[in-house]
Amino acid sequence: MRARFLAAATSLLLLLPALPVRAQDEIPENIQIGLSTDQVSITSDFSGAELTIFGALDNADPLVARQGRYDVVVVLEGPPRAVTVRKKTRVLGMWINTESVIFRDVPESYSMALTRAPQDISTPDGYKRLALGADNLHFQPLKADGDPKTIEEFTEALLQRKEALGLYSTQTGGVRFLSQSLFRASLKLAPNVAVGTHRARAYLFRNSVFLRETSAQLTIRKAGLEQRLYEFAHQNSLIYGIAAVLIAIITGWLGRIIFRKD
């Protein structure tokens, strides 16, 4: 399935009030993003998609814009969940989970798109202050008394696994200016993207200096029947189980009738 998204942000531009001319530096630049839909449905054969977010700069300085010195970073962050990271070691020749660290509030996914390479937009310190980028997410271990070396090793492993699963990704050039003030961000949705409330955030930089950020919410859910089954399985698990049994019995019985030979 291809997720359907439409530009909604174009309208934002048209809504800009025709203000009387003022000195450019009196009105600070602002950034806005728009989602055409606040819900994305995924089906069981979902194999990943691109999510397009449109956005606009208000009061952009035409000179700065023409020189391409505005930069935008857009992030789509999945719902925070506790995650257990396990490590296998060899025991009697078998690979067995032996160590584990639990982290609290780890975003299920973290997809980032930038106008240019990260180092060209801001400094590592700048990213750190904004807590921007997967490397700057702070993963809090559930037990505070763990060995710092172990925590560091498992934090690193957590990031690597998330990247390997396609859940944490960075697309340099994923944000493109369509005009001096209108931009489009393409973010990756991994095939196993988590359902729940995702938060889209956009950060505006001018000459590598952070100016403003804005955010919007997006709900990702399973499509139609699957969503209903998923909700049913979690909310009415007893009835779900009984229904599963009944379906099995009816299937077995029908099979008997259809193929009966004795």
Partner: peptide, 16 residues
């Protein structure tokens, strides 16, 4: 059980 996994680390959602 005896083959080295692709990664020795694995993730599972939830504090289990």
């Amino acid at each position: 059980l005896f083959v080295q996994p692709e990664s020795v680390y694995s993730l599972s959602t939830g504090a289990m």
